[in-house]
């Protein structure tokens, strides 16, 4: 097992990486040792959890039409026009 200590750059990468991947024992251990001694990375880990949850919430709320953007009127007219031109050509 590696006794090498990792710094914040590697630790923060692992904090992100572990959300989609399993850390092997060595990397897991290195991260735990780093987190024991680094309050900034502990904070970082918590914030990244919060970020992931918030983005999940964001994508869900957007798919339920709550973060409403409207197709601008001008574009809507232009698209209608392009569509009907195409429809009439058939």
């Amino acid at each position: 097992m590696s006794r090498r200590m990792i710094a914040c750059d590697e630790a923060s990468f692992l904090i992100s990486y572990r959300h989609e991947n399993r850390l092997g024992f060595k990397r897991w251990w290195q991260l735990q040792m780093h987190l024991l001694t680094c309050h900034l990375c502990r904070k970082y880990a918590r914030q990244i959890d919060q970020l992931n949850n918030a983005v999940k919430h964001y994508s869900e709320s957007c798919s339920h039409d709550t973060c409403q953007h409207h197709l601008p009127e001008e574009a809507s007219v232009k698209i209608r026009h392009a569509l009907s031109k195409e429809l009439n050509a058939k």
């Binding site: 039409d65 409403q68 953007h69 409207h70 197709l71 601008p72 574009a75 698209i79 209608r80």
Partner: peptide, 28 residues
């Protein structure tokens, strides 16, 4: 289509490309 799904598709596009003009083009 424009009336029923214009806003819905525009929402989908703008969240992903973050550029209004590009999103409008994608809808069209």
């Amino acid at each position: 289509w424009v009336e029923l799904y214009g806003d819905y598709l525009f929402n989908y596009a703008i969240v992903r490309v973050n550029d209004q003009e590009k999103a409008e083009d994608l809808v069209q």
